[in-house]
């Protein structure tokens, strides 16, 4: 019903400008955890550190891998949990 073009306009990660189509493509290529996806396409590596996209991406992973969210590895959360400008450490 919907064209591929409209799939391109569904944004999942606002910070890194990643669409649902791009994330699903990577899942199909074999990147099966959030942290793997983060390493290849930077989802959750942007300024919000995944606070907006994490739940959506975990849901996409669960749907496409046919598993429950709680059975998937959760992304590693490291400090600082919010970006700090280097200048602030001077």
């Amino acid at each position: 019903m919907k064209s591929d073009f409209s799939e391109e306009k569904k944004i999942v990660c606002r910070c890194e400008d990643l669409t649902a189509a791009e994330i699903i493509k990577k899942i199909k290529e074999g990147y099966h955890t959030f942290d793997e996806l983060k390493r290849v396409i930077r989802c959750g590596a942007g300024m919000c550190q995944g606070r907006t996209c994490r739940d959506l991406i975990m849901k996409l992973l669960a749907q496409h891998l046919n598993r429950r969210i709680e059975d998937l590895p959760h992304p590693t959360i490291r400090p600082p949990i919010k970006p700090i400008p280097l200048k602030s450490f001077q």
Binding site: R14, R51, T52
Partner: peptide, 16 residues
């Protein structure tokens, strides 16, 4: 993609 962006959460969480 140079898509126009506004705020989303308005409480300092989403960084939009």
């Amino acid at each position: 993609y140079q898509r126009p962006r506004g705020f989303f959460c308005a409480v300092g969480k989403c960084a939009s």
